[in-house]
Structures are given as structure tokens and as C-alpha cells.
Computed example of a mutant assay.
Amino acid sequence: MKKRYIVFTLIVCGIIALIAYRISANSKINNPKNEKKTVNVMGVEGQVLEAQKFADNLTLSGTLEANEEIEIRSEISGIVESINFDEGAKVSKGQILFRVNDIELRAQLSKVQTAQQLASENQRRAKLLLEKQAISQEEFDVSKADFESARAESQLIAAQLSKTTVRAPFSGTIGLRSISKGTYVTPATPIANLVNTSQLKITFAIPEKYVSRMYAGSPLTFTTSNSKIVYNATIYAIEPQVDIATRTLKMRALADNKEGKLYPGTFANVTLPLETVNDALLVPTEALIPIQNGKKIFVSRGGKAKEVMVETGARTDSVARVLTGLKVGDTILTSGVMSLKNGTPVKVNLTN
């Protein structure tokens, strides 16, 4: 019995010793002092900054407008006697567009011209009588006033008569007509639109900070939403003051449209050249990280990522110009930048 107790005690002690040994061995293995430190190096893409030529352009939205545009109307009321234009056709300056019936005006003109002739004869006789002192000066003045009144009335009706024939005030394209032969028109009746599209105006507005760079004669280019063709235009007029509500300055440019490919009312994408920089530092837009106080970019220095605060200027769809914070020869990181932290070890794969 005593031997069993001794054997059992030895077995228990052995098990306890084995457990203690395993715990001690595991603690040594997991001890950080005995660990071999492993460093994760992040692979990223980058490029070495070089000075480049950069055209600093201002991109704006504008609207194409006809060089000249009016709504044709009749200055007098009456029935349309004839229509002398085709809808959508080209017309020349001075060309007759339509006529309003003038029978009543011609009759009135004939009547007042007869009265004018009589008043003229009465004035002539009165003058002869005045020279013979057969009538007073007052009587002569009355006859003279009658003649002047009759002549003025004749001129008035003649002017109204001339308005029965409506002519094109300038050359252009006439639109769709709103009348037919026999229509009774008044000065409030719209007839058709006449538009001169041989040249088009582009109206746009620029932010006030660029005002000092603008002047009449500045060239620009533009495209339209329905075409990729690049057209040229020249600024010819600038508003004398900045709009207080929008803080912009409105201006207009003139573009040739001899081929008739441009239409008034079309949206225009205007590109206004500001300056050309020969030593600009350009970075891909994806390399820039927006932060609360501006923008930052990561560069590679000593095998580690370092964040640098930068100030940017003009930009395009793919690149932005950096004004401060970088210099020629810096290696900027362009991929995986959102995962980087200051001091992260990096392996840079340089790209063009």
C-alpha cells in the first residue's frame, strides 16, 4: 500500500514538472525579445518631377448668340397683300419681305396733297397782296401756317404709306412665318425672326481674379456640345464693371460662321488662355490628397514615404500644377497614396 502511494506521488510530480516545463518553453518562444522583427515594405508607383511646359487655360461655359437678330413686325395695321420671302431662306438687306394693303393711305395722301396745293396757292396770293399792303401781316401768317400744316400732313401720310412695304434691315436668314396672305396684322403681330449668323457672338463671364488679364482683342477657342471641332474667336467687348452678385465680369467674343455649322443658342465650352509656363511642376491629380487645410502629396525620401503640404494652381483633367512644396528631382508617389502614412517604408516603381 505504501509503495502504491509513493508511485502515485511520483507520477503526479512528473506531470506537474512536465506542465511547468512546457509553460516556460512557450513563454520563451513568445517573448518579443527573442522575436525576429519583420518589416513590411509597400510597393508603390512614382515618378521623378521634371520642369515642363504648361499652358495655363481658363475653362468656362458660354452661349452662342446671333450677331444680329430681330423679330419682324409691321409698323402699321392692315391686311397682308403679299409675302415675298420663303421660310428659312437667305435674304439681303433692303429686300422686300411683305406688303400691307395701302389703298386707304393712298387715297388719304391724294386728298392731303390736293389740300397742300391749294394752301400753297393761297400763300402765294397772300404774299402778293401783302406786298401791295392789301392784307395785314397776320392774314399772311395764317395762310402760311395753313400751307405748312397741309405739307406736314402730306409728309405724315407719305411716311405711313412707305411703312406698308416691309424690307429686311440687314442680310441674314429668315425663320418660320406666323402670317399668311390676307392676315390682318398690327404692330403687335409677330411676322418672323430674321437672324444674321455669318458671325456669332459668344457671351461668357470670368471670375474677378482674372479681370486684369483680359483685354479686347484676346484670342480664345471654343467647342460646342454637338461637335468636337475647335473654333477660334476674339474678344471684342468687355463690361465696364464686375457683377456684384456673382463676382464675375461679362464679356463677348466674335467668331466667323461662314460655313453655317454653328447655331445661335448653342452651349459653348470656352477655353481662354491665360499664360504659358515653361518650367511648371505637374503632378497627376490622383497623387493629390485633399485635407482640411489644403492638399498634400507623398514623396519618397530615404526609402520612406514623406507627406508634403503643397499649393496647387491651374489643372486639367489629368494633371495639376504645383506652386509650392515640391522641387525638380523629387520622387512623388502616385499609387496607393490613400494607404500611406508618414514614414511608411516603400519600394518605388518609377513610371513616366
Rank of each mutant, 00 (worst) to 15 (best):
Q123Y: 13
Q123T: 09
Q123F: 11
Q123H: 10
Q123I: 01
R124H: 09
R124F: 10
R125D: 09
R125E: 13
R125N: 15
R125H: 11
R125I: 12
A126S: 15
A126T: 08
A126P: 10
A126F: 06
K127E: 14
K127Y: 08
K127P: 08
L129M: 12
L129R: 01
L129S: 08
L129Q: 05
L129H: 03
L130V: 07
L130Y: 13
E131P: 02
E131T: 04
E131Y: 00
K132P: 08
K132M: 14
Q133Y: 00
Q133S: 08
Q133N: 10
Q133T: 09
Q133P: 01
Q133A: 02
A134Y: 05
A134I: 10
I135M: 13
I135Q: 14
I135S: 15
S136Q: 09
S136I: 07
S136V: 04
Q137W: 04
Q137S: 14
Q137A: 12
Q137E: 10
E138N: 07
E138W: 02
E138H: 06
E138A: 13
E139S: 11
E139T: 10
E139F: 04
F140Q: 07
F140Y: 15
F140N: 14
F140I: 03
F140L: 12
D141N: 11
D141W: 04
D141Q: 14
D141L: 07
V142H: 03
V142M: 03
V142A: 03
S143T: 05
S143N: 09
S143D: 09
S143L: 02
S143E: 05
S143W: 05
S143F: 02
K144N: 11
A145S: 09
A145L: 03
D146V: 01
D146T: 01
D146P: 00
D146C: 00
D146I: 00
D146N: 14
D146H: 08
F147Q: 02
F147M: 08
F147K: 00
F147L: 03
F147R: 07
F147V: 00
E148M: 07
S149Q: 13
S149R: 13
A150P: 03
A150H: 01
A150M: 03
R151G: 05
R151H: 01
R151E: 12
R151N: 05
A152D: 12
A152S: 09
E153M: 10
E153K: 10
E153W: 00
E153C: 01
S154D: 01
S154C: 08
S154P: 06
S154T: 10
Q155R: 12
Q155N: 13
Q155V: 09
L156E: 14
L156C: 00
L156I: 04
I157M: 11
I157T: 15
I157L: 14
I157N: 11
A158P: 06
A158H: 08
A158L: 09
A159W: 07
A159G: 04
Q160L: 15
Q160V: 13
Q160A: 11
Q160S: 15
L161S: 02
L161D: 00
L161Q: 06
L161T: 02
L161F: 05
L161M: 04
S162A: 15
S162C: 11
S162N: 15
S162D: 15
K163H: 13
K163I: 09
K163A: 10
K163E: 11
K163W: 06
K163T: 06
K163M: 12
